[in-house]
């Protein structure tokens, strides 16, 4: 099996000064390339911490986490930035679009970070926006778009630089059922393929059916990994 993510005994402890909170307590998890993995569990169980570690934006305190064959903790911060810029796409619960940039400009950001010229990046961004059904709205500011449309822009932004890993944090929790379903269909249809892995953190049981596998977490542990269907 070609692995996209391999976590071995990953530990993360938050030291707030007054107390230490163990967010990840010896996580072992393999995620295959081309797989859609969902991380589920109650609030505070460590789901978001785990995708932060997998995405390379948070360092674990112990254990090993290989992402796309690279052990991120061993990387210099500059290399880790480049790794994220090239290989990771993000979809957030609150969309996190830059409010003063229009849809195409927002989508073009990962390309610009990767050194693509602005005009070329925006041209490609419009292409990707067409793929998510927003080709006509490329000039719209986030405030002029509905929640579902904003999330589609965010998906376009996560896809535009063809990353091999996309991490999504509660991508449907700010959306109604139908819109959430549409967003997941879109993600699965255009984001997922054999060379790309999706890791989705969610509470939303209505979308569990889209997953290839679901890892249930509680209290910093993975208590069960099961197939969704």
């Amino acid at each position: 099996m070609n692995l996209a993510v391999r976590c071995q005994n990953v530990v993360k402890v938050y030291d707030t000064g007054e107390q230490k909170v163990t967010a990840l307590n010896g996580i072992n998890l393999d995620i295959a390339m081309g797989e859609l993995m969902m991380l589920v569990g109650p609030s505070g169980c460590g789901k978001t911490t785990l995708i932060s570690v997998i995405a390379g934006i948070l360092d674990q305190d112990d254990g090993r986490c290989e992402v796309l064959g690279e052990n991120l903790i061993d990387m210099r911060s500059k290399d880790k930035l480049d790794f994220r810029a090239r290989n990771v796409g993000f979809v957030f619960q609150a969309f996190n679009l830059l409010p003063s940039l229009n849809a195409a400009e927002n989508v073009s950001i990962p390309l610009i970070i990767n050194g693509v010229k602005r005009a070329e990046a925006e041209h490609k961004a419009i292409d990707v926006l067409e793929h998510v059904g927003l080709g006509e709205r490329w000039q719209s500011l986030p405030s002029q778009l509905s929640g579902g449309q904003q999330q589609r822009v965010a998906i376009a932004r996560a896809l535009v630089h063809s990353p091999r890993l996309i991490v999504c944090d509660e991508p449907t929790s700010a959306l109604d059922h139908e819109t959430g379903h549409n967003v997941m269909t879109l993600l699965k249809d255009i984001a997922l393929h054999k060379d790309r892995t999706l890791v989705i953190v969610t509470h939303d049981a209505r979308i569990f059916g889209f997953a290839d596998r679901i890892a249930e977490m509680d209290d910093g542990h993975i208590i069960k990994v099961k197939g969704a269907k």
């Binding site: 995405a55 934006i57 500059k78 930035l81 480049d82 790794f83 994220r84 810029a85 090239r86 990771v88 993000f90 957030f92 996190n96 830059l98 950001i109 990962p110 970070i113 990767n114």
Partner: peptide
């Protein structure tokens, strides 16, 4: 700050 955080997460140094 959140917008800078997004840029940082996406790989901006």
């Amino acid at each position: 700050l959140r917008q800078f955080g997004v840029l940082k997460a996406m790989g901006t140094g």
